[in-house]
Nucleic acid binder design. Sequence first.
RNA 1: UCGGGGGUCGUCUAACGGCAGGACAAGGGACUUUGGAUCCCUGUAUUGAGGUUCAAAUCCUCACCCCCGAGCCA
Length: 568
Amino acid sequence: MAESDTNTTTDFIREAVAEDLATGRYTWVRTRFPPEPNGYLHIGHVKAFSIDFGVAEDFGGQCNLRFDDTNPVKEEVEYVEAQKEDIRWIGYDWGDREYYASDYFDQLYEWAVQLIKKGKAYVDSLSPEQIREYRGGFGEPGRESPYRDRPVEENLALFERMRAGEFEEGEAVLRAKIDMQSGNMNLRDPVMYRILHASHHRTGDKWCIYPMYDWAHGQSDSIEGVTHSFCDLGYEDHRPLYNWFIEQLGIFAPRQIEFARLNVSHTVLSKRFLGQLVQEGYVSGWDDPRMPTIAGMRRRGYTPEAIRAFMDSVGVAKKDSLVDMALLEYHVRDDLNRRAPRVMGVLRPLKVVITNYPQGKVEEFEAINNPEDESAGTRMLPFSGELYIEQEDFREDPPRKWFRLAPGAEVRLKHAYYITCQEVVKDPQTGELVELRCTYDPESRGGGTPDGRRVKGTLHWVSAPHAVDAEVRLYDRLFTEPDPMDVEEGEHWTSFLNPNSLEILTGCKVEPGLADASPGSRYQFLRLGYFALDPDSVPGKPVFNETVALRDTWAKIEEGRKGRRNRS
RNA sequence: UCGGGGGUCGUCUAACGGCAGGACAAGGGACUUUGGAUCCCUGUAUUGAGGUUCAAAUCCUCACCCCCGAGCCA
């Protein structure tokens, strides 16, 4: 905490901004986050807007939210609402500065006319295919369009007719007149306006020509007085064009700075591919808890604080990187460890009967809610002669260093008594484990004995008559490969989808206090992991999402043994 | 092929000519009424070759490797 206050986290972007202020290039700082409302925001966007909002914050400036809505065929209001909610949830606020590129369509049109008059833009009547041909390729220069030198008056008239709807889509475009020989494709007379007979979610049918990204973005920045326009590396070679338009127009010049976008292992970070997962039914929706979307992470139980801490730890640079999902999970655990109340829940129940516990007796034990936070207080837990423990916590034939229950072994039930396994009851037909018959030590009430004997294992449990039935959804990585997009030819990225990314457990038993917990609340199920109540829950029938498992040292030991055995 | 950008532990990232540091991951240990948390310890990196300099990850040259770019997408 105190650390992050004193630690001025810096990076090449903040250094550049500080320098711009020092040299007087700008006297204020304003940034913007410009999402296209064509899908849900994911953790990669969080990096982007953490930089946009974070830099503004650090330099006493402001960050605008501006929807980049220049393509009506892809954009929908549903997405603008979702994106706003998600940004707010992460913890950023744009005040009343909610803008749309479409707010500037009139101004942009005016400016386009200005460029035509300057002889810097022209209406091209080549077909889309011809334009592509004329553009040339990486090795060879492009060729100039035969329409490139139309007189200004003709261009003006044609452009007006484009606006008036006199052309079909693809019949004409407005192009900037720059340099068909340029090594930078973006400068080979880029298209500024195309015809789209589509109605727009904000401007309706007012327009049938829509500005391209390059023509809209820099000018929108300029209008808003944005000093620093951050974007990903993909726009690096658009910067000369960004600057060219601003310069031709002679308007306020923002500075574009590019950084490497975030990649996280075992997932994909692209609205297009995430949308495909939704459409093709690989996940239940944009907010499926396995999705790296903000909505998905929220439903999964991740906290905004954890996500922001993760952003701080990944840094900002220009190097392509693939951040290990384990780092995100570390921050989620780190945050939840501090704040999640501990409860007991048994995922795969195994019945335990305490044979020497008085018939029908019920006791209550006081349990600490969070050992990391005394102010979280305590709660009372019912205990009886019939309990559930985790199937995993019993082995008939225990391996070395097994601290849990086994025939003849004694363990502690958290907050309650020591029990010793006396008998294993199996189904005579199937041989399947039915229940354990154990004895308890009345002296061990509260978890310790007068003789101070050592019990290594402590198990979580739930009193059978008091238990609440729950559904628990266990999650694993969405993809089996760290970089699913890195496919060999002939392979498809969806073939790396993890078939075991979701496991639904029913008949789980949780402590009674959880019967009507409210959706979104997060808990640590003792010894298991963090779980968040899903909105699918109904009163008395909770559904939990596994947020992230606790570190499991024992699992690691066993895995290590297995590995060693296989190797020898 | 041309243009743009980038190469530091397994992974992210620091260093701004002066001891290559941190975090995650991995491995080991201590502690433990969560095999959680916490604490301690360990290993492993400057793409390569030259040059400048008392001193180079950092400056210069030349290689090599990786990413992006030929939408009327953003």
